[in-house]
Nucleic acid binder design. Structure first.
Lengths: 352, 352
DNA sequence: CTGAAAGCGCTTACAG
DNA sequence: CTGAAAGCGCTTACAG
């Protein structure tokens, strides 16, 4: 199958040495205009492009990046990836996407090998840099194996991690504060008159969940809202989880008047649960999603949600990685403060 | 940064030649047990793995696959990809994901270069095989440039295309019939008593849309349902499109009693539109999605949808590609007949 | 401006 | 069973 047009053939047909062909290809070395023209013609004729393996061997770069995510099916990660790939492609890098299937639940169940395997894989592949988004890094307790694997990876090539900083691991950690958005959302709900606000979804022992829970508690305290452990109903991050977790809240003796959902998936499951209980949103229960995945304008009810600028984050991390690879100045850290997009589901001021 | 442990270092430290190291690595050549043990120890000590570029240069394979999709953010493609990547990884291949951003609309707007660029890119990268899912291949009229680029690609490496067959292009085309699902859905709606069924979403000139529309028309005819051009409201494939398209149907003088949405995105937009008109699903309008993206059990209303076995499709195409690469027997073509999952949104039998 | 040659890190006949 | 050597397709000092 392989056409196998090599630099040698181009050289022969152009009547020059392979060194000269290489030079016209590289572009930044003086070559006589006539020679260059002749060679370029032959190159065009055969659609010749240098074998990246041979090039990579000498240049010590593969022009390939690795992106490691737990679940590309999750809109958060696919949005992130889209930005990363777009920018990388512009810069003539291709990207290997690794889908580790990591989940806190399956991890707890003992499947804790895959991510480290992927670290080794991208290393073996000689990628020029790696972006890691989510996975075990999101657990409050990171295993020693993971830490070592990450350290090993990062000591070989540049790696940007979206997640909590780990000391003694030479990655560039991009850690977005999770507390602000929750504070804004609860503040808003409280301003509407809600005192009893439920927290739905997310899994304990995961950084995002715990830090948002922390923000929740401190807001509850500072605004003197109902402080009741029953108000917290965690689960995981998907539709069925939202459904299950919300039901627990709906079964409470003293009902909540508002709910904070971990993300849009959870919110959709929550809507389903609330509807099952023949309650209305927002009339009976106000709802806000802490992480906008899709445009809430088209959901029913129109979902009030925190926009966390995921696209900008994707753009930022790829720019960062490329800078580290090429040793150029890092881009400034954008302001990732979330935006509360108020729509229908959060409702109006409660009449007392 | 590069540790640069090469086969030479392993050989020296083991007191053998690099040829021997290479042999213990390959595994399928006789090596004295003691020699093997010694070498393996050193390999382990340094976590040595052969440089894939050097290997690739000789073996003429990169152990890398290319997957080209228009939009990884679309659940259909991310589901497909997840399966592909999972299986590829098992087989020790890594996959480069190319997100072309192709859309029929932007294509019509003149942006018709990107896909061909990606074809060239994966070719230059020397991937061992390519899977193409969607993109220009989904247009009823494929440009000559695209056709040529695809032919060029496919004449160099194995490529599997999910989409219509193109004559004279040596790809393996996997073409799933689109008519059956629509027939089942309309049949079901008609059995419930619906005579006036709207078709929402999808874009004209796109194979899926046109063939589903064809199935729609032939069912309308064979079941003697209302046949009215106004009943067709196409747009594109996302939420806002569903919303807009559904509104057009809702503005009709003679209202529809049921709607067929191109996919879950369209269905969600349609739900929003129907709700805006203060109508109920399914009491006033029954709704079926032709392409299930997420578990409709958790939507409100619970969405009746066609399950098209996207995961199985992903698994099939990657198996197919690997077989073509390794020259082994092709897997049997599974039955991809869609499944109508009946839930709430399609309603009950109409009372006459 | 251009060519001959070394070398990137590996695999695999070819001898022994 | 093992080593020396050629060669995969390229780039880049080194001469000229």
């Amino acid at each position: 199958m392989n056409k196998n047009i090599t630099i040698l053939q181009i050289a022969e047909e152009s009547g020059v040495s392979i060194a000269t062909v290489s030079r016209v290809l590289s572009g930044n070395v003086p070559v006589a205009p006539k020679t260059r023209a002749r060679v370029e013609e032959v190159i065009k004729k055969y659609h010749y492009t240098p074998n990246p393996m041979a090039q990579g061997l000498i240049l010590r770069q593969s022009k390939t990046l690795g992106v490691i995510v737990p679940d590309i099916t999750n809109p958060y990660f696919s949005t992130l990836f889209t930005q990363i790939e777009y920018f990388a492609h512009q810069a003539h890098y291709s990207v290997i996407l690794c889908n580790t299937s990591f989940s806190a639940t399956s991890y707890a169940g003992g499947e804790h090998e895959k991510e480290e395997n992927y670290f080794q894989m991208v290393l073996d592949k000689k990628v020029d840099g790696v972006i890691i988004a989510g996975g075990q890094i999101d657990l409050c307790e990171v295993s020693e194996d993971y830490r070592n694997a990450l350290r090993h990876l990062a000591s070989s090539i540049p790696v940007v991690v979206i997640g909590q900083s780990l000391s003694d691991v030479p990655c560039h950690f991009v850690n977005i504060a999770q507390t602000k958005g929750v504070s804004i959302a609860i503040h808003y709900l409280a301003s509407l008159g809600h005192r009893r606000i439920g927290f739905v979804g997310g899994e304990r022992g995961v950084v995002v969940t715990e830090s948002r829970l922390g923000a929740y508690h401190s807001m509850v305290e500072s605004l003197s809202l109902d402080d009741d452990p029953e108000l917290i109903s965690t689960s995981d991050y998907y539709l069925p989880d939202g459904y299950r977790a919300a039901k627990k809240l709906l079964d409470l003796e003293k009902p909540v008047t508002a709910m904070l959902a971990m993300n849009d998936n959870i919110a959709i499951g929550t809507i389903r649960a609330i509807t099952d209980y023949c309650l209305r949103i927002p009339e009976d229960i106000a709802l806000i999603s802490c992480d906008q995945f899709i445009d809430g304008t088209y959901l029913t009810p129109r979902l009030t949600a925190l926009d966390r600028h995921t696209e900008e984050l994707g753009l930022y991390v790829i720019q960062l990685l490329l800078c580290k690879i090429q040793n150029t100045a890092e881009p400034a850290l954008p302001d990732f403060s979330p935006n509360l997009v108020i729509r229908e589901s959060s409702g109006k001021k409660l009449s007392v």
